[in-house]
Design a protein around this nucleic acid. Sequence first.
DNA 1: TGAGCGCATTGAATCATTTCATTTCATGCA
DNA 2: TGCATGAAATGAAATGATTCAATGCGCTCA
Lengths: 337, 337
Amino acid sequence: MGMSVRDVATRAGVSVGTVSNVLNRPDKVSPHTVDKVRAAIDELGFVRNDAARQLRAGRSLSIGLIVLDVSNPFFTDVARGAEDRAAEDGLTVLLGNSDENEDREAAYLDLFEKQRVHGVLFSPVGDAQSRLDALHRRGIPTVLVDRPTTDERFSSVAVDDVAGGYLAARHLLDTGRRRLAFVGGPRDLHQVADRLAGATNAVDETADATLEYIATDALTVLQGRQVGEAIRERDAVERPDALFAANDLVAMGLLQALSMVGPLTVPGDVAIVGYDDIDFASAAVVPLTSIRQPSALIGSTAVDLLLREAEAPDEFERQHVVFQPELVVRDSTAPKV
Amino acid sequence: MGMSVRDVATRAGVSVGTVSNVLNRPDKVSPHTVDKVRAAIDELGFVRNDAARQLRAGRSLSIGLIVLDVSNPFFTDVARGAEDRAAEDGLTVLLGNSDENEDREAAYLDLFEKQRVHGVLFSPVGDAQSRLDALHRRGIPTVLVDRPTTDERFSSVAVDDVAGGYLAARHLLDTGRRRLAFVGGPRDLHQVADRLAGATNAVDETADATLEYIATDALTVLQGRQVGEAIRERDAVERPDALFAANDLVAMGLLQALSMVGPLTVPGDVAIVGYDDIDFASAAVVPLTSIRQPSALIGSTAVDLLLREAEAPDEFERQHVVFQPELVVRDSTAPKV
DNA sequence: TGAGCGCATTGAATCATTTCATTTCATGCA
DNA sequence: TGCATGAAATGAAATGATTCAATGCGCTCA
């Protein structure tokens, strides 16, 4: 228990400096000595103490990542991308789940600061201005994730939700639909606003097409089901022939309500497009057409920007990376027959 | 930047020892001095360096937690319970996602050891014998989560899956069903084996009841759908009138296949019980009866045992805590009319 | 007045690692 | 043989918070 470099040094008959060199720059040490030291490490079961390392180094070997919801596959994929990229530089990702709660978010930021992380990646709850100001004031490299910004103090990595909205609506129009409806809310979520804006752009290009906005209180299956039930009751002339849901959960609710009961069919009477391309989307009763985001790439890119900023905080130009989403076509939008 | 207790001490005109006392035992310091020191801390923006604290203390202020799948709501609830309990003792939970991958699991264990965590909570991948042996050899307090064991070297916190299986089957029998089928696999998952065993016990108590085992390769929606489609095609005499799925995802697949197409209804022709009571379960087309596990309680209890062991490693008697699951009745098992 | 008490404060030592200026030593070359 | 060279190894210093034995100080009471 509690073996230190000093114990290893004694055992191997060398100095502590040499043990440290074996650990960090084995090429600077003669092969014979390296062997002796490695043998001593094994015999004693020595495990490096990260705290001492970090104290000496002035900062930790980790990056903090705060997501809005760990159980959302989008964020777990982002985390995976970040971990893999960080591992390339021998760094670890500390994962915090804010659960859209500002107090939890603030608690994680405090923790990360005490831990002297290299920097923080995060998807802020609300506008988080005060917390962002504090991070900037303290000079902690910070990259905003899935949150477009023009703030020049921070880099950001996001996906073009306007383009995603356009893709979805364009696809519906291309497959012959004309009476579109966008389902989602609340409208002050930037994802909702942007996706709707993109859809609007596409509809505006097409003379005889219309787009209705149907608001929900949240992006959940239940909310989608309720909207779906309301739509089911409408007269045929009032009914949209295509629905674009702000995310896959809402889309699944719509699908359930429309296809379960009554005479309507998907995609026969109504086509549905979701957003996020979660696993459930392809496993739905009618496999769901959706918009896929390059989640892992978002994570790795964010780490990349973070490390570059951490290396040269003054010179590094903050960047705003925006990825393009991708349309994944499945049965729920097959053309009308 | 880089303010230390020394800077704070200078600013406040006191010694470093006093600053430390203000931080850790403010009642031992005169109120006037406390104010001076707090003011200096604010003015300088001093943030404690965890690495130095941990170095001195000999161990970190955290507990490691490794789960099989962060996106499974069961595990995020466990994590929440653990975090809350740990916070009571001023500790942090480092969350690692093994994703049922032994290499990732091993990497997290290494990390936690270098960090000198208080101990490790984990839900091992496979039998993990070698990793468990290593933890024991090094004297790292370890609590197994959601993994019943009789191993006297480790405490464990789990849910009685046999009882859960019994509850589910008993409920189906009580509501008048007689031809039961259990759907799930692979059978070497202890959850699958135990839940099936419990269901078998219940069926054995009832003279005219039968239980069929229908295997799946994994516990996913898709696998459930496939089984559901096969059942839909059976002749009425061959068809079960009640299905008990090894988890809610499988149950949802079954529900989709049975209730979407064809003449069968749920619960009219076939009743369905799931397991885990995930959010989706109550939002399904037919709200799903399910077995709920006290997930947060599992997490907090595990931390509890861990801390008691960490305090007195030699005296503390390892414990095997087993919680009882709970039946949550919804529409999918309404009695036959 | 001075001994005795207790609260408040001090600051050197400690934790484990890394770094780097210095030392050691073998080798090659004149 | 004497000297220069450079690779290898050394060990003291530094990182920042905490602890604890020692000290200071104000007060009471004889």
